[in-house]
Nucleic acid binder design. Structure first.
Length: 721
DNA sequence: CGCACGTGGTTTTTT
DNA sequence: ACCACGTGCG
């Protein structure tokens, strides 16, 4: 076959795209054309007549990825893609559950709880059950419930051998009852419920098995056990599962993803051969060389080595800063230079391990007048005012949604306080009904609130979606509430922003109506729960990208700065403590492979963290990169703050300056905070703290391997580096 | 009922 | 340093 569809594919990509109808695992390295292979495979199946769009199910990790695939597909194929199911696991399960809500024992209007909703539902339940939230932190209970479900376990199936776990299982059971009563499902429930539906209902299962002869899965390394079981169920014995993934980019094990699914797939689906996509089209040889050298320190890899036809390239630039502030200053300087050389700001990314690190960077960028955009952080549909507006809509749609009612029954304030709410809860318990029903019978302010919801529902019954929302915003009192807050000088800005966001909600609804066939309120509410991200205003502007390494997966940039490369930060201390360095290293691997042309690696000797100055050693990951690929940019002496302690020098013991002016007398001793030291038994470390003087002096040292220790200078054999 | 102040807790994140 | 949450007061 010689179609333009297949031209330009390399032999491995071609093999993957044109595989006969059988299950397959495609091991696709970073930048190896993974998305292209997936979309071309679908286009190939359809255009050769092997399958109609109706026979295809494509699963992605994020909504964004699903959207992108759909866009690419419609560019490749002139035919209508209706009938093709593409989406995230959660989106697809939601779709099935809506279609078969009766069989799944759910109300047609069931609502989806996001993590925040879930947490408040758990808190509310625990209060009703009189559970001590000191002994059972709600967050931990939430985790317990979610991760149990993600393993495919119901409350009765959880292994609970100790009283503590047994109690959590009881809460779990009650929580599920509460959700059922209120007609809501949480994220993992979508998957579990859908899995149970398919496994219990044979005709339904066979219907979908006959339909989806081709199942394609992206980011397969990130699937959890329940998702894998769901895929297995749908695939049955006949269908082919085309899984694409990269074990080296598995960075979500911490929330239940199981890389082992890749091995299981090979066994369960009798996959004969794994196709490896190892040619990288993104980065030059030095960047790739560094990535390969790093990841080789990991055990238990499926084995894969990225290569590129473009050898060489410039070396990776390494910068050691005195402080996080210096680090940020260096970065802004380089960005300005890059911009002068014609690199667009939007082609530059600043990556960090944890969100807290963005602050120092942002500060420097603002002073430098560089526009930037922070990804992650608070999402549109998670903003307080949006959640409030949605709660009105949800309650109109489903009176049983106690979560929604509690959020808005007194917002804006209408004189229904904690006391009144308690009474409602008692009444509801009495006759085993919803808070809404209780409020309807209570009389007074509560009943007036019920009247408000009823009248909102009545007035908007025939309206198109954006007008429903507009009406609700106006008549719920939300708009008036924020308008009145504008008169308070301290809240003016905040209120204006919230009003803007509420307006943006109407825009989002308008967009939704244009993009979706099902433009009902119920569909929009599901969309709001399932697609919490993405919706960002002002994306047209040329701006830098700031994000965590996790958020950068799947993206690429001309230039990338990996910042905060310090032991304890990246790799993060928790992963060092728990011995989970491999996942952390994969994270670093993901970070490195985001860069096309230029890569900066920066770290600081001291950093302000949680209001305290921290001193750390350079990240061990930096030491794992081959020397010859790096170019150290030693900071100029005069540019450094007096409290800077070391002269940058790679790898070999660092030379300290003692001649720098110091402000306090005791810091002239070699045992100062921030000083790097060597100990015969514990190895290298940094002084965190000191105590006493002279012969009695004790110092606290943070050792790379052994962690923090107090040592007496009289006995410990410590030498400055 | 609503506001002011105090306390605790801060890896990563999508759905 | 900063934010979210909870308690106690006016």
């Amino acid at each position: 076959m010689n179609s333009p569809l297949l031209s330009g594919l390399n032999p491995e990509q071609l093999a993957a795209v044109t595989l006969p109808e059988q299950s397959a695992l495609i091991l696709a390295g970073a930048g190896s054309g993974k998305t292209r292979v997936l979309t071309t495979r679908i286009a190939y199946l359809v255009s050769t007549g092997q399958a109609s769009p109706h026979n295809i199910l494509a699963v992605t990790f994020t909504n964004k990825a699903a959207k992108e695939m759909l866009v690419r597909l419609s560019a490749m194929l002139p035919i209508n893609m209706r009938g093709l199911w593409i989406g995230t696991f959660h989106g697809l399960c939601n779709r099935m559950l809506r279609a078969h809500h009766r069989e799944a024992n759910l109300p047609q209007t069931f609502q989806i709880l996001d993590s925040g909703d879930q947490l408040s539902a758990i808190k509310r339940l625990m209060k009703a059950m009189n559970v001590d939230d000191e002994k059972f932190p709600p967050r931990e209970v939430q985790n317990f419930i979610s991760s149990s479900k993600e393993q495919g376990l119901r409350a009765t199936e959880v292994e609970a051998f100790d009283p503590y776990t047994r109690r959590k299982a009881e809460i779990f059971a009650e929580y599920d009852k509460q959700c059922q009563r209120e007609g809501v499902v949480d994220f993992s429930e979508l998957l579990l419920r859908c899995h149970e539906l398919l496994s219990r209902n044979q005709p339904l299962r066979e219907h979908y098995q006959e339909r989806f002869r081709h199942i394609l899965v992206d980011e397969f390394q990130d699937t959890n056990p329940l998702q894998y079981r769901w895929l297995k169920l749908l695939a049955g014995k006949e269908n082919s599962l085309f899984a694409v993934g990269d074990d080296d980019q598995s960075i979500y094990a911490f929330r239940g993803a199981n890389v082992g699914n890749m091995q299981e797939l090979l066994r369960d689906f009798h996959v004969g051969s794994v196709i490896k996509l190892e040619q990288n089209y993104r980065s030059h040889g030095n960047i790739l060389g560094a990535a390969n050298a790093l990841i080789q320190h990991n055990r238990n890899r499926l084995g894969k080595n990225l290569w590129t036809s473009e050898n060489g390239g410039e070396p990776l630039r390494v910068y050691e800063a005195g402080t996080d502030v210096d680090e940020a200053a260096f970065i802004t300087g380089e960005i300005k230079q890059l911009a002068r050389e014609g690199v667009k700001l939007s082609e530059i990314a600043l990556l960090y391990r944890s969100n807290a690190q963005s602050r120092a960077l942002e500060h420097a960028l603002v002073s430098a007048g560089l526009s930037y955009r922070v990804y992650g952080g608070l999402r549109f549909f998670e903003r307080q005012e949006i959640k409030h507006a949605l709660a009105y809509l949800r309650l109109m749609e489903n009176n049983g949604d106690d979560n929604a009612l509690l959020r808005i029954i007194n917002f804006p304030a209408r004189g229904i306080g904690a006391r009144g709410i308690e009474q409602l809860q008692e009444a509801a318990k009495q006759f085993n009904g919803s808070l809404f029903d209780a409020a309807a019978r209570a009389g007074g302010k509560a009943t007036a609130f019920v009247g408000l919801i009823e009248s909102l529902r009545g007035a908007t019954r025939e309206l198109p979606l954006p007008e429903i929302i507009d009406h609700v915003l106006q008549h719920s009192g939300l708009i008036a509430h924020y308008e009145s807050e504008k008169s308070s000088p301290s809240k003016k800005r905040e209120a204006e922003e919230r009003l803007d966001n509420l307006n943006e909600l109407i825009n989002a609804a308008t967009l939704f109506v244009h993009e979706n066939e099902d433009d009902s309120l119920a569909a929009f509410l599901a969309h709001a729960s399932l697609e919490a991200g993405e919706h960002q205003a002002g994306s047209g502007e040329d701006a830098l990208h700031l994000m965590t390494v996790h958020a950068a997966k799947g993206l690429e940039f001309h230039s990338v700065f990996i910042t905060g490369l310090e032991e304890g930060l990246f790799p993060h201390q928790n992963s060092i403590n728990s011995g989970e360095l491999d996942e952390e290293r994969r994270l670093m691997y993901v970070a490195i492979t985001r860069a096309r042309r230029r890569l900066y690696l920066t770290f600081a000797q001291s950093r302000m963290l949680h209001g305290q100055v921290n001193y750390s050693l350079v990240s061990s990951f930096l030491r794992e990169l081959p020397d010859e690929l790096l170019r150290w940019i030693t900071p100029r002496l005069e540019a450094r703050a007096p409290r800077t302690f070391s002269q940058a020098k790679p790898f070999s013991p660092q030379i300290r300056e003692t001649a720098l002016p110091v402000s306090r007398p005791e810091t002239s001793s070699p045992w100062r905070i921030g000083q790097s030291v060597h100990h015969a038994k514990f190895g290298d470390g940094v002084i965190l703290n000191t105590e006493g003087r002279g012969a009695d002096m004790r110092v606290q040292v943070n050792f790379r391997k052994a962690g923090a220790k107090w040592l007496s200078l009289e006995y410990a054999k410590l030498s400055p580096l």
